[in-house]
C-alpha cells in the first residue's frame, strides 16, 4: 500500500467546505479518549465528580482528545500527506455522552509560503446535540495544514527553516 492520492493545494479554494463528520458520543468515547491521552482527571470518567463537583451535566470530552478529533477530521480530508502545523480551538461548551457531535469546516485561506510550502487555513466547528440538550456550538477551531502543491510534494519532508507553522 502506498500513500493515497492527496488533496493538492492548487485544487483548494477559499470558501470550499469539507464534508461533515458525525459521531455518536458514548461514555466509552469520553473515557477512552481521556485515557488514550493519559488524562486521569476524574471529570472525564467519574459521573458523580463531574456533576456534583464540577457542576456539569455529565463526564465530558477532554482537551487533548478534542485535539485528536480535530486532527482526525482534518486529515480524513487531506489524506496522509496533510501535515497540521497549527491548531487553535476554543471550547465554549462541553461534549457529553448521548450527544451526536458533528464536525464541519470551511477553507478560509490558501497560500504558498516563500519556501514553497502550500498552506490551507480552515475554520472548523464542532457542534453537538443530545436527547435533552439543544444543538449548540461546543468548539471552534482554526487550523493551518500543509498540503502538497504537486503530486510529488511531501510536506512531511520539511524541516528547520523550511517548516514554518
Amino acid at each position: 500500500m502506498t500513500a493515497s492520492a492527496p488533496v493538492l493545494h492548487p485544487t483548494v479554494a477559499v470558501d470550499d467546505t469539507i464534508d461533515d463528520l458525525t459521531i455518536e458520543v458514548t461514555p466509552t468515547t469520553v473515557v477512552l479518549g481521556a485515557l488514550a491521552s493519559r488524562d486521569w482527571r476524574p471529570m472525564h470518567h467519574d459521573f458523580k465528580f463531574a456533576t456534583e463537583r464540577n457542576g456539569v451535566a455529565d463526564i465530558f470530552l477532554n482537551t487533548p482528545n478534542q485535539a485528536a478529533w480535530f486532527e482526525r477530521y482534518i486529515t480524513d480530508w487531506t489524506g496522509p500527506r496533510g501535515r497540521i502545523g497549527r491548531m487553535t480551538f476554543r471550547m465554549r461548551d462541553s461534549v457529553f455522552p448521548g450527544d451526536a457531535m458533528t464536525f464541519s469546516a470551511t477553507v478560509t485561506g490558501a497560500e504558498v509560503d516563500e519556501t514553497g510550502c502550500g498552506w490551507v487555513d480552515l475554520d472548523v466547528t464542532l457542534r453537538a446535540v443530545g436527547p435533552d440538550r439543544p444543538e449548540r456550538v461546543c468548539s471552534t477551531c482554526s487550523a493551518r495544514v500543509a498540503v502538497p502543491v504537486t503530486a510529488d510534494d511531501n510536506p512531511w519532508s520539511r524541516r528547520g527553516d523550511d517548516w514554518r507553522p
Binding site: I84, G85, R86, T88, R90
Partner: peptide
C-alpha cells in the same frame, strides 16, 4: 476547566 488550546507542531 480548560477553555482554549493552541498546538504548534
Amino acid at each position: 476547566v480548560m477553555t482554549d488550546n493552541t498546538l504548534i507542531l
